[in-house]
Design a protein around this nucleic acid. Structure first.
Lengths: 354, 354
DNA sequence: CTGAAAGCGCTAACAT
DNA sequence: ATGTTAGCGCTTTCAG
């Protein structure tokens, strides 16, 4: 592979000139520039990005750490980051954490070794302290789908409470009074917040959600089936079922159908996430749309902006083209603002009025 | 961030010694080694991978170019590559091609700039000539899901004909005689091969598939719905429906159900891929399992092995742990062998006997 | 076994 | 406007 010296030699100029032509910043004579560009094309020269990164101590690479790419949700997350990366001519470096705290840290460190300064992290199990420390060390670190007050301006997250409340309210409006909930065994964060949204909305309508109408299981299709089986086994009566996510909702639909119940005639089911499975099941699932892809794109933009600020360049985060974006009331310092997205109700065929 | 000089200074040794300790290749005195390692730990030193890559002209990075990460199939593909990358301590550099030939090439070139020598490419639209040329230039390039005879040993692909034949035969064994097929509008490669598998299996049973029982559409849920609607509209009679993939099959199920047909009682439906949607729909879909993740892992192993061979190191591709792996009859030269995987039938609830 | 020194390919002062 | 030159952080001869 030709290098900068070859180009310089063939074009009869110095390597500095070639460098200038490549980077376009400085002024180069027209004739000279044309000649260099011609040679670059002829030789098929492409700058060595390792050398560039080494000397300029900055690299247009964005890193993404995610639990498990094979899951639709995370694949979509990755797609969002990739979109921004492509638009801003960044490279995307990926690492799966496989849901393990240690490999999550390993992944982050390996990204840092490659001095990638913008990092989008979906962390589920690392504790806040670790993440805060990390955020201090890495100016371009942004968390998706998690909120940590101390680093609020580095968090791009979803209002799970509002989302769950929205779904619940819709069901109330449809005259449902008997609710059941199937939720994930990880009662921290998301599941907890969604449950809270449900509870407070019901409470406002003077309905208490009995403990026995809540069943925990794994957050997948099988979990949904098991949870509903358990609910049915102990004779819980409900006309409305709120599932932690679409996967569980789909499992629930299978289990309800197996038990001879009709959906939505006998029981209405609502999911969360709006994955493709929501459109695959029958009846198609009414669910809360989780704008993962938009959030991920935004998170990537934020990470890039922060990382270049951190490198004391004055790049400012351009306004996101995304309409779902909610800003805090404090618009002053970037430090005082977090990045909260809202989910929206997608009505399909799994909900009926009582 | 501490660099190698800092470590050398603090440990009271030369940078060469630190380098030796890091790489472990050369001999270093025990006392000396221990001291250096202690300092490395204290300073939290991590070698700059750009500098390493620059000087050693080799980088443990594997690149993946894929059309669209947000699609389950490609997310799973990426997960497979990532698995190998993690196991072999490689970094994963990703780029979406967005189904465009030019961005596919751009993506590959950008990977090469980062001198990543192992590349896994899922190419749908580039022509064979381009790919062959690319393969000549990049020793570590491997194609997934595509077969090009001239570079057979660099292709990791699926026997689509056999897969479709298997599904068809199963239907024949269940006494079905009236077939319909919904296929993708891209009649090249995969759809063509699957159609061929169907046709030849039916032919062997003395059944001809009438042209009007074949409907083309887009390879997604909507496409499946449209295709079935078209079939029904022109009164095609069939008891067995073969869909190009799971997405189309799911759409078909929706459309059939909407038309008052029962599945599998009135019509049996078979998909292809075994994505999660196959388990989400009702009835759960009988389909051909496409071992994407295993294939992708394998492709990544192959790419790494080839790239280091290309760098004239004598790393040999270890036998794949994967049972689906089929080798050519020529086990001699690696050049004489391709990497063909087989799909397997997953029986669920969308098929009944006549 | 360890150190000195020469680059890897490039950018960015500093000269001219 | 263009050339000269000093590194970026590391690996790898080559000496000792």
């Amino acid at each position: 592979m030709a290098n900068i010296k070859d180009v310089a030699r063939v074009a009869g100029v110095s390597i500095a000139t070639v460098s200038r032509v490549i980077n376009g910043n400085h002024k180069v004579g027209d004739a000279c520039r044309a000649r260099v560009q011609k040679v670059i094309k002829e030789l098929g020269y492409r700058p060595n990005s390792n050398a560039q990164a080494l000397v300029s101590k900055t690299k247009s690479t964005i890193g993404l750490v995610t639990p498990k790419l094979a899951m639709t949700f995370f694949g979509t997350l990755a797609a969002g980051v990739e979109k921004t990366a492509r638009e801003q001519h960044y490279k995307l470096l990926m690492a799966n954490s496989m849901y393990e705290t240690q490999s999550e840290l390993d992944a982050i460190n390996s990204l840092r070794d490659h001095n990638c300064q913008a990092i989008v992290l979906h962390s589920e199990y690392s504790d806040e302290k670790t993440l805060i420390k990390l955020a201090e060390e890495i100016p371009g670190l942004v968390l998706v789908n998690r909120y940590i007050p101390a680093i609020a301006h580095r968090c791009v997250w979803l209002d799970n409470i509002a989302g769950a409340a929205c779904a619940t309210q819709m069901l109330l409006d449809r005259q449902h009074r008997d609710f059941a909930v199937i939720t994930s065994i990880y009662q921290n964060r998301d599941p907890g917040a969604r449950l809270q949204g449900i509870r407070q909305t019901l409470a406002a309508a003077n309905i208490t959600l009995p403990e026995h109408a809540i069943e925990e299981s794994t957050a997948n299709i099988e979990g949904g089936m098991q949870a509903v089986a358990a609910l049915l086994a102990r004779n819980v009566r409900f006309t409305a079922l709120l599932a932690y996510n679409d996967l569980m909702a789909v499992g629930a639909i299978h289990a309800l159908f197996a038990a001879g119940l009709r959906i939505p005639e006998d029981v209405s089911v609502v999911g969360f996430d709006d994955l493709i499975v929501a459109r695959a099941c029958r009846p198609q699932l009414t669910t809360m749309h989780y704008p993962v892809e938009a959030m991920a794109s935004y998170a990537a933009e934020l990470a890039i902006a922060l990382s270049s600020q951190g490198a004391s360049q004055k790049t400012s985060l351009k306004d996101s083209p995304n309409d779902n974006l909610q800003l805090n009331q404090h618009r002053s310092g970037a430090e005082l603002r977090t990045h909260l997205f809202l989910s929206t109700l997608i009505e399909r065929d799994s909900v009926a009025s009582r």
